[in-house]
Design a protein around this nucleic acid. Structure first.
Lengths: 138, 138
DNA sequence: TGAACACTTGCACAGTTGTTCAACTATTAG
DNA sequence: CTAATAGTTGAACAACTGTGCAAGTGTTCA
């Protein structure tokens, strides 16, 4: 059975409205590509490492105990989203975070990730409220 | 050929050092899970929609022109990372952003995504500097 | 010039993820 | 009670992604 889009419930029934900048399709696409690049633990670790300062590929590989090739591939992904900077210094190629924005993003997520988890709901039925997320923050 | 971890280049050669909070393995895991959840365009769009105010599943499905089941599945992923709140109101279940942190994260990434791209470099070799992102992307 | 070092890249394979269908639970109306 | 509405969930499948290997490029140094 294919239930699609014929809402018997009208939008006016609920839905408050705050103001948000209009989000273009491309901005959204790019944002999600960035998120996706950040969404791999090894890659995120690599970025955290680079946040401490520039490093060459070999150096990173040593720190992470991974193969050079693997690190290089990871950096390729990050580079394709402009998340890292890159410059040659003699034999080495130094990588670093692209800018402060990237550092902020990572820092922000790590902060959120370190917050207390909302307890897994005991699957209880209550007076008209499921109350899953007791608004834990700010 | 398996070149692993025996750096002929010493760490002291380069690498500046800024201070960063020590990142635990679990925080990093969770952060990347959050990023991954945000890293799907439809899911991100859904969150942007919810950022404008709470909405029930049917409503969202109508707005996105998708099947209810699909929306529900997307919400499930977001819920599993505690990115959305959920409460029942009569027949409907209202979803919204979990907290300000989430809004910040999304807003931040969208801002970064809307920034001017590093200019497509003329593929020139210059004094020891390879510009940030020489390659195109998708 | 040639050898050594420092990466990068194409490819194949395995593991992961998003979507859909169908069946299920939960709430309300008759 | 039953029917209808609202939403969830499990399974299957196609599409995507990360890794490691082998072979490549580019730079330095003798």
């Amino acid at each position: 059975m294919r239930r699609t889009v014929d809402p018997t419930c009208k939008p006016e029934e609920h839905a408050g409205a705050r103001r948000w900048p209009d989000v273009t399709g491309t901005a959204l696409q790019r944002a999600s590509r960035i998120f996706r690049a950040l969404g791999d633990p090894p890659r995120l670790r690599l970025l955290v490492l680079l946040a401490k300062g520039e490093a060459c590929v070999t150096e990173v590989a040593a720190a992470e105990r991974e193969e050079i090739s693997t690190i290089s591939q990871r950096l390729r992904v990050l580079r394709s989203e402009s998340l890292v900077s890159r410059r040659r210094q003699g034999k080495h190629i130094l990588y670093g975070l692209a800018d402060q924005h990237v550092a902020d993003l990572i820092f922000n997520a790590l902060a959120h990730a370190s917050e207390p988890r909302p307890a897994p709901p005991p699957a209880h039925k209550e007076e008209g409220a499921i109350h899953v997320t007791p608004d834990s923050h700010r």
